[in-house]
């Protein structure tokens, strides 16, 4: 018999090994679950890694209060189905308490404000390992991040002081107050994610597939019109057939024109895509070449 795994099976096995190391070595892990495709895959892998036990840790959602309703419904359905605990870190509540100030200038987003709520939920929950669905192919700063990514007691990432990561011998040793972000999908690409979704039959929120939506064209991106994204005076609203390639807060996530109504059609589009996932759809990464690096240093996902 041919003793070689397919690339998807090899990636899956690697991710499962990572998740099991964390479950074995950390006291209080948690899994960040936004309802997006990467976190859906991450959650699926966590279920497989812990099987036949239910996942022994809670899932955490940092909710900006400006999310797509389809995604929130999907999140709740998935959590109910798995019977796991959902911890919601609400950005809106932090604003209401006066912990942070909402940026209400035109074109602003609550994306960066999530860092505060994320760090607070980690501190309040005493989480020492937090799984995230980030991938190294997403962005240049992410390409240099470890699978076990150390965070100091302020939740900060120090790109130049990272621990070397050799073979699959992960070092998660830390002091009280410090924590690790764990990225089991580090070596997956957008295409791998879609192929795996197809292989495993993983469910996703409907907005990942082509649907009609009222949009405006802004900075050459299509922004869905909704309660938090109203057209500006000079913008014309029109209906388009679109899907989302990434799903974040409504204010910083753009749609792409698409006719892909199922996973196979999305895979075909992904193979042919000429613009990166974040470049096509994230208004937050367009400020500078180092936008992600700066947010990450502060403690962002």
């Amino acid at each position: 018999m041919e003793a070689l795994l397919t690339h998807l099976d090899a990636l899956e096995s690697e991710s499962i090994q990572i998740i099991r190391e964390v479950v074995a070595e950390f006291e209080r892990p948690a899994l960040l679950f936004s309802g997006g495709k990467d976190s859906a895959v991450l959650l699926h892998l966590a279920v497989k890694a812990c099987w036949p036990q239910p996942i022994p840790f809670p899932v955490v959602h940092v909710d900006t209060g400006q999310n797509f309703e389809e995604v929130i419904a999907f999140r709740d359905a998935r959590v109910r189905e798995l019977g796991c605990r959902l911890v919601i870190a609400s950005v809106q509540e932090a604003i209401d308490r006066g912990d942070i100030t909402d940026d209400v200038s035109p074109g602003s987003s609550r994306n960066r404000l999530q860092t505060h709520s994320l760090l607070k939920v980690i501190e309040d929950g005493n989480f020492d390992a937090v799984f995230g669905g980030a991938r190294r192919d997403e962005e240049k700063a992410r390409a240099k991040e470890r699978v076990f990514s150390f965070r100091d007691e302020f939740g900060q990432w120090n790109p130049r002081g990272q621990r070397p990561e050799i073979w699959n011998l992960f070092n998660g040793r830390h002091r009280k107050g410090e924590h690790f972000r764990i990225f089991p999908l580090s070596n997956w690409t957008e295409l791998d994610i879609w192929q795996y979704i197809g292989q495993e039959g993983i469910e996703l929120p409907s907005i990942y597939f082509a649907h009609r939506r009222r949009v405006v064209r802004r900075d050459n991106m299509l922004i869905g019109v909704g309660p938090f994204t109203q057209p500006r005076s000079d913008e014309e609203t029109f209906e388009a057939l679109v899907r989302y390639r990434t799903v974040g807060d409504m204010t910083c996530t753009a749609a792409v024109e698409s006719e892909a109504i199922d996973v196979e059609m999305v895979i075909n589009e992904t193979v042919l895509a000429r613009v990166s996932e974040r470049g096509a759809t994230r208004t937050d990464d367009r400020f500078s070449d180092a936008a992600m690096e700066d947010r990450k240093r502060e403690g962002y996902f």
């Binding site: 190294r136 192919d137 240049k140 390409a143 240099k144 790109p159 130049r160 990272q162 580090s186 070596n187 690409t189």
Partner: peptide
């Protein structure tokens, strides 16, 4: 280049 970077 400072650190190991992974490409796909």
């Amino acid at each position: 280049t400072i650190d190991v970077a992974y490409r796909y």
